[in-house]
């Protein structure tokens, strides 16, 4: 650094390359390093799955995180409830005004066929739930929701807010639908009609 660099204009020869060999020892060490690296990736690659993200480590782990089919049914039902039912029956299932509550309601917890029938055809006129009379008008859902979706909503409301009744499947709803068809019910139910068609239990 002591002397001033000078602009020199002399031409140098074009460089050529020598023939020194890579020592065998170095080659072996490098190969070993590569091998260790590859085994590490082999161990940590999570089977190249597209759904495993840090900090999870394996497809089995991610599969265990996913909700079971039973939980999914309830989750789907919850979403359907939020979209279709919440406006009248409220987020806590407590009902409002003329709309009866769902939490703890015998109409929800007891006879599952009767419950399916109410959703399929709707319900009008006075009805007594948990000691109080409500006079609302519930629309029919059979044209809006599929049987499977109805089953999902019903499963959700039967297992939420402290309710704990059995799951309802899509086939069960379809069966009820066919049964109502036979009976020839086309208008929304009234309470007396309902009690006649389906036993309290």
């Amino acid at each position: 650094m002591s002397e001033e660099p000078k602009l020199s204009m002399n031409e140098h020869d074009e460089p050529v390359s020598g023939n020194a060999q890579m020592p065998v020892g170095v080659a072996v060490v490098l190969a070993l390093l590569g091998y260790i690296g590859c085994t590490k990736v082999d161990e940590l690659n999570a089977n190249f799955a597209s759904n495993v993200h840090f900090p999870f480590g394996s497809p089995i782990e991610v599969a265990s995180l996913a909700p079971s089919e039973e939980q999914l049914v309830v989750m789907r039902g919850k979403a359907l409830y939020a979209k279709n039912c919440m406006a009248c029956h409220q987020a806590n299932g407590g009902g409002s005004g003329v709309n009866p509550p769902l939490a703890n309601s015998p109409y929800v917890l007891e006879n599952s066929e009767r419950l399916s029938a109410i959703l399929l055809k709707g319900l009008g006129g006075p009805i007594e739930v948990l000691g109080k009379t409500y006079n609302g008008a519930m629309p029919a859902w059979e044209s809006t929701l599929s049987d499977v979706q109805i089953a999902e909503v019903l499963t959700y409301i039967r297992q939420e807010w402290g309710n704990s009744a059995s799951r309802i499947t899509g086939e069960e709803v379809s069966k009820v639908s066919a049964k109502i068809q036979e009976q020839g019910q086309s208008q929304p139910w009234t309470e007396p009609e309902l009690s006649e068609a389906f036993s309290a239990e």
């Binding site: 140098h12 020869d13 050529v16 390359s17 020598g18 020194a20 060999q21």
Partner: peptide
């Protein structure tokens, strides 16, 4: 290599 006028150590 050009300026110090030596050959490049190793082609390999």
């Amino acid at each position: 290599p050009k300026i110090i006028q030596r050959e490049l150590h190793s082609r390999q």
